[in-house]
């Protein structure tokens, strides 16, 4: 199929997508808007985890630590100055009077997450397999412990509240589209092929001249950047950040989304994040009705177990969406 035509389809699909966002923003009720925002945030989290874990093959259990960093950065930047002065006495003086909008907060959140990922990655990425997994889990715990104890910067266990609700569907959907596009481009670039080569066979890849440590670090840092942005969006959507929010449950949730979608497939991650957000909301309603809190976690865990036992490659495996395949089923012009 002609590539110009494919681009045309893509632009049309994007147009339809943003039309939907417009309709939801203008006419949707608050609840649906919130679900839409969460959905986009989960898409960002899952797609960026897929870059480092699925495509690159880094066994990371610490991804949500980068989200926490992003969320705290955004929270500190966007917190009203009066509260900042009262709560965050550990910040340098000049920061007390600053209150940024969402875009600078997001970018700085992403950047700081990426810088931390760079420093942590230099150290942790030398480990392999389960040892990398547990070391990254250690990183997550360290982040949580710091958030709990650094009272004058994070306000400890009480968390930071009264954050302005900057996040809306335009921000989250744009960020999601940018993330998907960026990861997609990386996957289809020579870097992406190097990543897969290193994942499949580290030594063989190195013997043909791929700098495996560098490419792993690259995937890790980019993944952390987008995850940090998701954290910023999350902070200014929910309005509160606290250490407990960014821990095991969220870690498992995005791992489930990635594995069920298919490790290595961007398309799979998007489908799965969308589907699971809806499932999560349905289950939450069900949970409230029967007053058995926590049952949705259990159901998710069981779904994951069944999936990994019976279909470990997930919905999509490592295949991707293409207009060509769509055209086989639906006769497009």
């Amino acid at each position: 199929m002609h590539s110009g035509r494919q681009a045309g389809y893509t632009f049309m699909a994007l147009g339809l997508f943003f039309l939907g966002i417009y309709l939801l923003s203008a006419y949707g009720n608050h609840y649906y808007q919130r679900v839409g925002n969460l959905m986009m945030i989960y898409v960002i989290l899952t797609v960026s985890l897929n870059l480092s874990s699925g495509i690159m093959g880094i066994s990371s259990l610490g991804q949500i630590g980068f989200m926490a960093i992003g969320a705290y950065v955004a929270a500190i930047l966007t917190l009203p100055p009066g509260l900042k002065e009262r709560w965050l006495t550990g910040l340098p003086h000049w920061m007390h009077s600053i209150q940024t909008g969402l875009l600078p907060a997001m970018l700085l959140a992403g950047l700081l997450a990426a810088v931390v990922a760079f420093l942590v990655g230099i150290v942790i990425l030398r480990l392999q397999g389960v040892f990398a997994a547990v070391a990254t889990l250690g990183f997550l715990i360290i982040v949580k412990v710091i958030a709990e104890n650094w009272m004058t910067v994070t306000r400890g266990g009480r968390g930071l509240s009264a954050l302005p609700a900057y996040t809306n569907l335009w921000w989250t959907s744009t960020a999601a589209v940018v993330t998907i596009y960026a990861v997609w481009r990386i996957l289809k670039s020579p870097h992406g092929r190097s990543m897969i080569a290193v994942r499949e066979h580290d030594l063989a890849a190195q013997s043909v001249g791929i700098n495996a440590p560098k490419i792993r670090l690259l995937a890790f840092v980019i993944s952390a950047f987008f995850t940090g942005i998701a954290g910023a969006l999350w902070a200014n959507l929910i309005g509160v950040v606290s250490p407990g929010s960014f821990y095991l449950w969220l870690t498992l949730l995005i791992i489930i989304m990635m594995v069920v979608g298919g490790m290595g497939s961007v398309t799979g991650s998007v489908i799965s994040a969308v589907g699971f957000t809806i499932l999560l909301e349905l289950l939450r309603g069900f949970e409230n009705k029967i007053a058995m809190y926590g049952i949705s976690y259990i159901i998710f865990a069981v779904v994951f177990l069944l999936m990994i036992i019976f279909r470990p490659e997930g919905i999509m495996g490592d295949r991707e969406f293409s207009w060509r395949n769509v055209r086989r089923i639906i006769p497009l012009p």
Binding site: S59, L248, W249, L252, I298, A301, I308
Partner: peptide
């Protein structure tokens, strides 16, 4: 949880045990 996964990738069993944690801890909450 683990016998059905015997012989599958190390990472899969690790993630499985992570899921078992969530399962058991939320079961206990319930």
């Amino acid at each position: 949880c683990y016998r059905p996964l015997r012989g599958s990738a190390e990472m899969n069993t690790l993630l499985t045990s992570f899921a078992v944690v969530v399962l058991l801890e939320n079961g206990a909450v319930l």
